[in-house]
């Protein structure tokens, strides 16, 4: 699904990713842990196609190089990033935005666009699964949403857009226990042979709910250790300092 070879990324003349290698097969869940500032969100941004980075190395998605593919095309091809800090977009109605987004992606895929009634039914169903109060969906996108509501809204978008490669950047931070469980269930019910996940987190707790196939430690722009979910437990006990 995703192959990253010797990826380097710098911004404002500062190198942040310093030669990163990673391979994710279809159906797999990979977790990335690592200290603050190690480059986790940068990796997520770079995969999403965000402008402003100087990049070298290779990123292949479904066998195709992503190097020159712009942000929206990546999304249309099935790459989804749940943001660590979802942005507030004043004046834009959440439901309208979701519908525009879904239809743009459907159109790009050559699928038939969804009408308003079918869309509202879809949203209603998915929102219910995630325990999202439907009322917030008629509000402005993320504006005044609580931290947890913002994160849930990201997962709702994931569910509706139905992508293949899903990057969750600290989706668990700031969630209460119940929300954590609901969101994990949401992710788990989306797991399939065709979908892969890259889960960025600081907490082993999330990985008890979303069982990863592989766990990687990112430190100073490189993956310095990879292992199974055991590694996450070990990190929780010892911290990053004792690694190596």
């Amino acid at each position: 699904m995703l192959v990253i070879k010797n990826l380097k990324a710098s911004i404002n003349n500062r190198e942040i990713l310093k030669g990163l290698n990673l391979k994710i097969n279809p159906g797999e869940v990979h977790a990335i842990m690592g200290p603050n500032g190690s480059g986790k969100s940068t990796l997520a941004n770079v995969l999403s196609g965000k402008n402003g980075y100087k990049i070298s190395g290779e990123v292949k998605y479904l066998g195709e190089s992503l190097n020159d593919i712009p942000v929206e095309e990546r999304a249309q091809k099935g790459i989804f990033l749940a943001f660590q800090y979802p942005l507030e977009i004043p004046g834009v109605n959440t439901n309208n935005f979701l519908k525009t987004s879904l239809n743009t992606i459907k159109k790009a895929k050559g699928e038939k666009e969804i009408d308003t009634i079918a869309f509202l039914e879809l949203v209603k169903e998915k929102a219910k699964e995630l325990g999202i109060d439907e009322k917030i969906l008629s509000r402005q996108l993320n504006v005044g949403f609580s931290g947890g509501e913002k994160k849930k809204n990201e997962i709702l978008q994931m569910k509706i857009l139905d992508p293949n490669l899903i990057i969750l950047d600290e989706t668990d931070s700031g969630l209460d226990i119940d929300a954590l469980k609901i969101i994990s269930d949401g992710v788990n019910s989306s797991r399939s042979e065709k979908k892969s996940f890259l889960v960025i987190t600081h907490y082993q707790r999330l990985l008890e709910y979303i069982k990863p196939d592989h766990v990687h430690v990112l430190s100073d722009g490189k993956i310095i250790k990879s292992g199974t979910s055991e590694l996450a437990l070990e990190l929780e006990k010892k911290g990053y300092k004792k690694l190596n």
């Binding site: 999403s48 196609g49 965000k50 402008n51 402003g52 712009p70 942000v71 929206e72 990546r74 999304a75 249309q76 989804f80 990033l81 943001f83 979802p86 942005l87 977009i89 935005f97 525009t100 987004s101 743009t104 992606i105 790009a108 978008q157 857009l161």
Partner: peptide, 15 residues
């Protein structure tokens, strides 16, 4: 805001 544009583009919208 460039970050807002980016956020919306990650949901499939053109610039």
């Amino acid at each position: 805001d460039e970050n807002s544009i980016h956020y919306l583009m990650t949901r499939g919208l053109s610039k």
